[in-house]
């Protein structure tokens, strides 16, 4: 039994230690907000926060997350009130939405480390793939969220 702290709750799961955290979240805990997109750490759809840092959970053995604070999209806020989520709705960012949990988690982490990110900061931090091409709005919405949070 491994014990995880997910979205501020302790949960016990009986899994092999090498199973990537993504599949513990999705298939063992039913937290399906975090998505599978590539499984090789290239697309960012599986991004969660571990101790506040953005991590691609599809390649992270779950054993590496034991004892740390895991936050998924479901735990980012209780009521979609995180400035990134608000800006995302305001600017109507998502299209199909499948990449957006990862996108939002990456953006929230950026906003935490840089209160007023520049375009260059955004370009560097936001390497998630969005096949629907929402990048124009992702960029604008991160700036909008920075204003909301200020």
């Amino acid at each position: 039994m491994a014990t995880f702290n997910v979205n501020a709750k302790e949960v016990k799961v009986d899994v092999e230690p090498e199973m990537p955290l993504l599949w513990v979240l999705r298939d063992e805990l039913g937290l399906t907000g975090t998505k599978y997109g590539c499984g090789i750490s290239v697309c960012g759809a599986c991004t969660v926060h571990i101790d506040g840092e953005p991590v691609r959970s599809c390649v992270l053995p779950n054993s590496a997350a034991v004892g740390k604070k895991i936050t998924t999209i479901e735990g980012l806020s209780q009521d979609s009130s995180h400035p990134i989520q608000k800006a995302w709705v305001q600017l109507q960012v998502p299209q199909c939405g499948y990449c957006q949990s990862g996108m939002i988690m990456a953006a929230a982490a950026l906003l935490k480390s840089k209160k007023q990110p520049t375009d260059a900061d955004i370009e560097e931090a936001m390497t998630n793939i969005c096949r629907c091409g929402t990048y124009v709005r992702v960029r604008d919405a991160i700036h909008a969220a920075a204003k909301l949070a200020a």
């Binding site: 399906t32 998505k35 999209i73 995302w88 960012v93």
Partner: peptide
């Protein structure tokens, strides 16, 4: 209509 559930992980896709 579909946007609120796409910012909080609540949208259920076939994969979910």
């Amino acid at each position: 209509f579909d946007i609120p559930e796409k910012v909080n992980g609540q949208q259920i896709y076939a994969a979910d």
